[in-house]
Amino acid sequence: MSGERTGGGVVHRFGDGIDTDMLAPGRLMKRPIDDLAAACLEALDPGFATRVRPGDVIVAGGNFGTGSSREQAAQVLLTLGIAAVLARSFARIFYRNALNLGLPVLVCPAAVEIPSGIRLAVDPIAGRARELDGAGQDTGRSWTCEPLPDHLMTMIADGGLLPHLAKRLAKRA
């Protein structure tokens, strides 16, 4: 159940209070998820969706995902291939939505110290993020995240709430 979610994705840094309208704009909510993903964070960082690469990591300040209950706010990040979000704190509905979808969201008290543009390998189970250099070697710099609560570990290992439920329901049958 251990293992790094990304072998060194580029860090995209954002500030405090990244809200669900910035992640998944309301005016596009009836469009397919790819359209929403193309507009992800455009209000803050035009072109973000085209620059971001699978395996990249978002690092942010406090209250990430504040606002609406719309699950698309987490789903767009998965669609863009974001491997993990590290933030000082998360809004509670976003936090549950992300984990339910299998997107690792990690509370990292020192998130503000992680610079933009570096390469980061993130292990959500161990709660650790380490910096890699251009050759994929450890630079020696790393940051710790709060470990996920025990009861969520199995769900994450199953790949999210739906696969987890499918397993549970199959056992019952």
Binding site: S68, S69, E71, I93, R96, N97, N100, L101, L161, L162
Partner: peptide, 25 residues
């Protein structure tokens, strides 16, 4: 299935907002 679900608390209930996958659960 909406973030303003706490509105129901005015009536002395616990009402919690959740996302769609959680709702499916």
């Amino acid at each position: 299935g909406d973030s303003h679900s706490p509105t129901g608390g005015a009536w002395g209930a616990v009402m919690i907002g959740i996302g769609a996958t959680e709702m499916a659960g």
